[in-house]
């Protein structure tokens, strides 16, 4: 790989790490601004000032904020996310399995949604402004416009209650085979797919239409290529950068934005875990989950940037 690409990629990665550090400061500061602290939350309203002071001493809360921040950051970097106040359990251990579940769901939703969205986008361009295009756009837009809980319940109603093809509650546990797991997550994955589909499809359509005006598309048409071959071979490769960007944003949404869908289907993922602990005001858990979500977001955006750099022949093959 040539030097400008390596340099640009290194820059993006360095920026990403810096950004993540800044986010960690924000998350920590944000939870500090909230009234009350962990000691007060543990002991409740009836706590005496003496017992509060004792507990603060015990938890190291009377140290200045920046020392606690570095303490927390040091723990995060060594894989220690602290313990949940409400249950006293190690956060890292409980998150590990849930993160895996969330990623599993997001992965299968993405496997279906991305190729489907891009193919529909290509077809929409091929029959642009005709009824096929309008139908694809209309249906995709409608599916995005419905709130995800509504789509979720619709799916449950038809496929779980009426026909009983898939379970209404997506419980997964250790020892399930891949097939069983896939059947369990079919409905939430379908709901997520419907939510992210339109955005990617429309961006694919718009990005390709943008390059359809180019002289090289005309060149391809004048070589006698079929309409679909022109789009796939000559327009799509030049529209890839904006498409990747939207795909990555939606992937991030699949990981981070699944809260509602996970709650509807009672799926043991990160979203459900976060919602549970927000209601319990369990600050260490909220901090840890927030940091992980931020990391996912930043990582996917870096990947989008890098993919766009690598997709650009001018950067890959300098003069």
């Amino acid at each position: 790989m040539s030097s400008p690409v390596v340099k640009l990629v290194a820059q993006r990665v360095a920026l990403g790490i810096l950004l993540l550090l800044a986010v960690s400061v924000l998350i920590f500061a944000g939870t500090q601004i909230l009234p009350g602290d962990v000691a007060q939350a543990i002991l409740g309203q009836s706590a005496t000032p003496e017992s509060l002071a004792n507990l603060r001493e015990q938890l190291g809360l009377n140290q200045p904020a920046y020392i606690r921040y570095f303490h927390w950051l040091g723990g995060v970097l060594t894989g220690d996310l602290g313990t949940a106040m409400s249950s006293g359990q190690d956060i890292a251990t409980s998150i590990k399995e849930r993160l895996w579940n969330t990623l599993f769901l997001a992965f299968w939703a993405a496997i279906v949604a991305i190729p489907l969205a891009i193919t529909l986008g290509l077809i929409a361009v091929r029959y642009r402004n005709g009824w096929v295009d309008k139908m694809i756009s209309g249906v995709a837009l409608a599916s995005t416009s419905f709130p995800e809980f509504f789509i979720g319940y619709l799916l449950v109603f038809y496929f779980a209650v009426e026909h009983q093809w898939f379970p209404a509650i997506s419980t997964v546990y250790d020892g399930m085979s891949l097939g069983e797991r896939l059947q369990a997550i079919a409905l939430p994955a379908a709901a997520l797919t419907l939510v992210v589909l339109a955005h990617m499809m429309r961006m694919t359509r718009a990005a390709i239409l943008n390059v359809m005006q180019s002289a090289y598309v005309e060149t391809a048409e004048l070589k006698g290529l079929s309409a679909f071959a022109v789009i796939r071979k000559h327009a799509f490769p030049n529209a890839i950068a904006p498409i990747i960007n939207v795909v990555m944003l939606n992937l991030a949404y699949l990981v981070v934005g699944v809260v509602v869908v996970e709650v509807i289907f009672v799926y043991p993922g990160m979203g459900q875990y976060l919602v549970d602990h927000v209601t319990k005001r369990d600050v260490p858990v909220v901090q840890a989950v927030g940091l992980i979500f931020a990391a996912v977001y930043i990582a996917l955006n870096i990947i989008a940037d890098i993919a766009a750099i690598v997709a650009n022949p001018r950067l890959r093959h300098p003069k």
Binding site: S214, A215, Y216, E218, T219, A220, L222, K223, H234, P237, N238, P313, R314
Partner: peptide, 16 residues
């Protein structure tokens, strides 16, 4: 019949 465009710089696909 083949075609030679005014601006070859624009008429070649930058990706190939």
């Amino acid at each position: 019949v083949c075609y030679v465009a005014q601006s070859a710089a624009a008429a070649f696909n930058p990706a190939h």
